[in-house]
Design a protein around this nucleic acid. Structure first.
Length: 112
DNA sequence: CTAATGACTCGAT
DNA sequence: AATCGAGCCATTA
């Protein structure tokens, strides 16, 4: 980590992800859109890849727009993401978040 | 330096 | 309605 300007998007992404309330989930594109870059949804996932090493970043609360645990495979264990979500109170079936629309957390509205 | 990929999403055909 | 392609930013080869 001798570099300096690696952070930029990641820093913002981390901040938003850390602000995700328990029992809530959001999507990469939503975070990216909140940051002002809808197209960088991929980067958000990339940021998670670097962030998932940080326990302060609940990457397990971040899923794709349909509530599918696309990145569960990147966790320490492929089930860690689902297990954690269920532990938070979010039901996950077949890597899919139940009541996703209800569990969805919109930073643009919640954080304004 | 150029090219390709990546935990995504939207628009067009 | 379903499928395909393009866009976006950053990292790695």
């Amino acid at each position: 980590m001798a570099k300096k300007d690696q952070y930029s998007f990641f820093e913002d992404v981390y901040a938003v992800v850390k602000l995700i309330p328990p029992g809530r989930v959001t999507s990469y594109g939503t975070i990216a859109h909140y940051l002002g870059a809808k197209g960088s949804a991929r980067m958000v996932g990339w940021a998670m890849n670097q962030a998932h090493t940080d326990p302060k970043v609940p990457a397990h609360r971040v899923v794709n727009r349909i509530g599918l645990l696309t990145g569960k495979h990147h966790f320490a264990t492929p089930t860690a993401m689902q297990e954690r979500l269920e532990k938070e109170g979010v039901k996950v079936v077949d890597d899919q978040v139940q009541d996703f629309d209800q569990r969805f957390w919109n930073p643009t509205e919640e954080l304004e």
